[in-house]
């Protein structure tokens, strides 16, 4: 008894389209500009103390808007720096982060800082201040000031708790050119002091925040921005990119082999069944 196969090619097309559209269904994603800084892996030398190095041109820049620090007194309602451009590079051992922002004047008290959470606990972006319903952790702050020509490695857990670490791990340099600052911060990706230092593991997204001070003085000789009166961002993400990972292709190849093998076995069995 021979039966006709009535499946029309177009009906197969519809079934196929449904299958494919099921696989193509939108997945949870995150598409927004500059939510993270990506520090690419470099093979050669890291521009660890050279904010003007050509190597930085190859690093993609992320830009983050800045606000005056209004969260706690003494607050400020207007600041010079409106945004900060951030680039990152790492060589598997050390990470360098370059900040770039517009400032019409070079002043001895111009300053900038990076902030990270330390450990597993979340920390408030304002110096890790205590939160009512969540137990927070400390923050690690890397602070550069023009006149000091060095970077301080500090910690805070709440207002008024800012403390310079005994062990200083961060180096860097600032260069003022054409109405803009470029400051590079460099530190080993990981340090021995996991209690106080942010640990940067390639591939992991960690939180980062920024602060900029315009050290210009007003007519009375007072600093326009100082201490808590600064331009700030809230938390964004930072990632030191991991070495390229091709294992996905290998797994896909194995899956294709298995699926093809399964097909072969099934069809052979069907053919045997049909011929008996």
């Amino acid at each position: 008894m021979k039966m006709l196969v009535r499946l029309k090619p177009w009906s197969i097309g519809i079934i196929g389209a449904c299958l494919v559209s099921g696989f193509l269904a939108p997945r949870a994603g995150w598409a927004q500009e500059s939510v993270s800084v990506r520090a690419g892996l470099v093979k050669g030398t890291l521009p660890a103390d050279d904010p003007a190095a050509a190597a930085w041109n190859s690093a993609p820049a992320s830009e983050f808007p800045l606000s005056p620090q209004v969260h706690w007194p003494n607050r400020i309602l207007e600041v010079t720096a409106q945004s900060v451009k951030v680039r990152g590079l790492h060589d598997g051992k050390q990470v360098s982060i370059l900040l770039e922002w517009a400032d019409p004047t070079e002043d001895p008290d111009d300053a900038a800082a990076l902030e990270f959470m330390v450990g597993d606990k979340k920390a408030h972006f304002a110096h890790g201040q205590p939160m009512a319903q969540v137990e927070g952790g400390p923050v690690n702050i890397w602070f550069w000031k023009n006149k000091d020509a060095k970077i301080l490695d500090m910690n805070a857990k709440g207002f008024g708790t800012l403390k310079v670490q005994d062990q200083q791990d961060v180096t860097g340099k600032g260069v003022y050119q054409n109405g803009a600052w470029k400051v590079v911060f460099t530190r080993p990706l990981s340090t021995a002091d996991a209690v106080n230092d942010a640990q940067i593991k390639p591939g992991d997204f960690i939180n980062i925040a920024f602060a900029i001070w315009d050290g210009k003085k007003d007519a009375a000789g007072d600093l326009k921005e100082k201490g808590s009166q600064k331009a700030v961002s809230s938390w964004w993400y930072f990632r030191a990119e991991p070495p390229p990972d091709y294992s996905g292709y290998l797994y896909a190849a194995i899956a294709i082999g298995l699926a093809a093998g399964f097909q072969f076995v099934v069809i052979r069995k069907l053919k045997k069944g049909a011929s008996t």
Binding site: L19, V20, F23, G203, P242, D245, S247, G248, Y249, Y251, A252, A253, I254, A255, I256, G257, L258, A259, A260, Q263
Partner: peptide, 15 residues
């Protein structure tokens, strides 16, 4: 069919 399985595997294992 095998290509679809391979693609699905890749997209679910890719970091």
């Amino acid at each position: 069919f095998p290509l679809l399985v391979g693609w699905q595997t890749y997209s679910s294992t890719a970091p």
